[in-house]
Amino acid sequence: MALNTPQITPTKKITVRAIGEELPRGDYQRCPQCDMLFSLPEINSHQSAYCPRCQAKIRDGRDWSLTRLAAMAFTMLLLMPFAWGEPLLHIWLLGIRIDANVMQGIWQMTKQGDAITGSMVFFCVIGAPLILVTSIAYLWFGNRLGMNLRPVLLMLERLKEWVMLDIYLVGIGVASIKVQDYAHIQAGVGLFSFVALVILTTVTLSHLNVEELWERFYPQRPATRRDEKLRVCLGCHFTGYPDQRGRCPRCHIPLRLRRRHSLQKCWAALLASIVLLLPANLLPISIIYLNGGRQEDTILSGIMSLASSNIAVAGIVFIASILVPFTKVIVMFTLLLSIHFKCQQGLRTRILLLRMVTWIGRWSMLDLFVISLTMSLINRDQILAFTMGPAAFYFGAAVILTILAVEWLDSRLLWDAHESGNARFDD
């Protein structure tokens, strides 16, 4: 018995066209964080690309023209004298008006014999932002004059995390709450300039795509075929072959399989920071003279006294001054041990922890910024005066060393310790 099946006739004509040209192939790229070699397709503007294995951002879609970056830099340069030299806060102490600005706080630190601690604050609040705007201006002028731009481009990517104007702005709020127990506070004209400078700096850093600047100024022929001998440069993120001198053909720094002496430098910085954190938390970090009496505060006791007036601000200072430094030390110690013992479990967790400490590390400088600003506000000789204690130097040095330890660690070593050939990683 035959089955009668109805015929289905399409209502619209289906047209099949042959592909007349070869589909576009992607360029081969190595991930600078996990060293995976993959094919990167062509990316349009405002599109980002991520590593298929570790999800690290390979290409950032946010990109401004150099002219727009230069305009932002010149605007920031105009704001800087007002943000640093004009009063941020006014207080009335014992019937006398006192003005506080950024430069005055750094000068008070240096004047009291601790120039190293003052230079830490100076670099993060004044030096690094000033280098940022002058570097962008150098790129703008240098591109037109045919100057060598490689050193500036190499420095810009590392400079971003040292620009800490946003953290200093939080420190202004913390210092205001600490001082309000002794005097009446009012915002100064410099505060508005400083807030504007923070906003412009944040926007500029978020749109400063150094890798795209490398592509514009020093374009290189990408690798179009897969080759395990391809290496990625950690300076400019170019994937290719080393030249005859073993250097990256684009930025001219040595092109090595792994960062040289990464573990040794990381261990040295980490152990030194552990040693410095002990006096930083045991010795007094601030000293207040009130009517001839002397009151010393460690980091913890200062947080407890701050909690009596504002528990939320005390929580912020606790996280930045105690929780973050010790968390960074514990995480980095764990990561280094996992590399030495070739741990194969929990790779995803370790990668996330490394990215976390990379982002939060700079916030530990908050305590030094609060001390710097408070020193310029309260300084009335023996009637009422505020000065920093010996722990300030140890704390600042420990924070900087932990930042350097994270920067010096080559994250690809975590993958080397893991089993080879993993296309995915999980716990």
Rank of each mutant, 00 (worst) to 15 (best):
L159H: 03
I403Y: 01
Y168G: 13
M164N: 04
Q186S: 15
V16D: 12
F122N: 04
N4P: 12
L377I: 03
A183S: 10
Y182H: 06
D297V: 04
A272L: 01
L169F: 13
I116F: 03
R247V: 05
G105D: 02
A405L: 02
L337G: 12
N143Y: 15
N148V: 02
A73R: 00
A100K: 04
N422Q: 13
H46S: 10
A268Q: 01
V275H: 07
L213G: 13
I96F: 04
Q264R: 01
L354G: 12
Q29I: 13
G315V: 10
G171E: 01
M109F: 08
L384G: 01
A115T: 15
A187S: 15
W92I: 05
A196T: 15
G293P: 06
I8V: 13
D114I: 08
D243W: 02
T334E: 12
I371D: 00
K328Q: 01
V102L: 14
A398M: 03
S376N: 01
D367W: 00
L368I: 09
Q47L: 12
L89F: 08
M388A: 06
L353M: 12
I311S: 08
G361T: 11
F122R: 03
V331M: 15
T224A: 09
D297I: 02
R158T: 15
S262K: 02
V329M: 06
P32L: 14
A417C: 08
A268E: 02
L191R: 06
M103E: 06
I19M: 10
L282W: 10
A187G: 11
L89V: 14
R259Y: 06
L208G: 08
I330G: 13
P81C: 06
A2I: 07
L205Y: 15
L156F: 14
C266N: 05
A100Y: 02
M375S: 12
R59F: 07
Q7C: 10
I288Q: 00
A397P: 01
I131T: 14
T117R: 02
D427N: 15
R231H: 03
A314Q: 08
H90C: 07
R226N: 09
T327H: 10
E212Y: 15
L234T: 07
F326M: 05
N4R: 09
I287F: 08
S273E: 03
V313F: 06
L404C: 09
H237V: 07
F369T: 03
L154M: 04
G246K: 11
K160A: 09
E215K: 14
L88T: 03
V179C: 14
R30T: 10
A314C: 09
D427C: 12
I172M: 10
V317P: 00
Q186V: 09
R424V: 12
M332S: 06
L255P: 03
I116E: 14
W214L: 12
Q112S: 12
L78C: 11
L384P: 01
A183Y: 06
Y241H: 15
F194P: 01
T298N: 08
R225C: 12
L191V: 10
D166Q: 15
A71L: 07
A223S: 08
T75S: 15
Y138R: 01
A312I: 12
R231C: 05
G346M: 13
R30V: 11
R355I: 09
F238V: 06
F123Y: 06
K229R: 07
F318H: 08
E296F: 08
A70G: 14
F326K: 04
V170L: 09
Q33N: 14
L66E: 15
L77K: 05
P284E: 04
E21L: 07
R412P: 01
V174G: 11
L373R: 01
I383G: 01
V275A: 12
M365A: 04
W64V: 15
V133N: 02
P87C: 10
H252N: 03
P81L: 06
R226P: 08
T387I: 10
F425Q: 13
A183I: 05
Q180H: 06
T110D: 13
F333A: 08
R424S: 15
G105W: 01
D243P: 04
W408S: 05
R226W: 10
G173K: 03
T327N: 13
W359L: 12
S65K: 12
L94G: 02
K13S: 11
I383W: 15
L354R: 09
D99P: 04
Q264H: 02
M155D: 02
A417D: 09
M356E: 08
S338G: 12
Y168E: 09
Q55L: 14
C31S: 00
S176C: 06
R424W: 10
L352K: 09
G389D: 00
N209E: 07
E22I: 11
V406W: 07
T110G: 11
L154R: 01
P129C: 06
W107K: 13
F38K: 03
V198D: 06
D181N: 02
G246R: 05
T11F: 11
S119W: 01
L347S: 13
W64S: 14
M76E: 04
V331C: 12
Q47F: 15
L3R: 12
P32K: 12
K13W: 10
L230E: 08
L257M: 09
E157M: 13
P10T: 11
A71C: 10
L23G: 11
S372T: 11
C248V: 00
G142K: 01
V210I: 12
D114A: 07
I299L: 09
V121H: 07
G235I: 13
C124Q: 02
P254V: 15
S48L: 15
I316K: 03
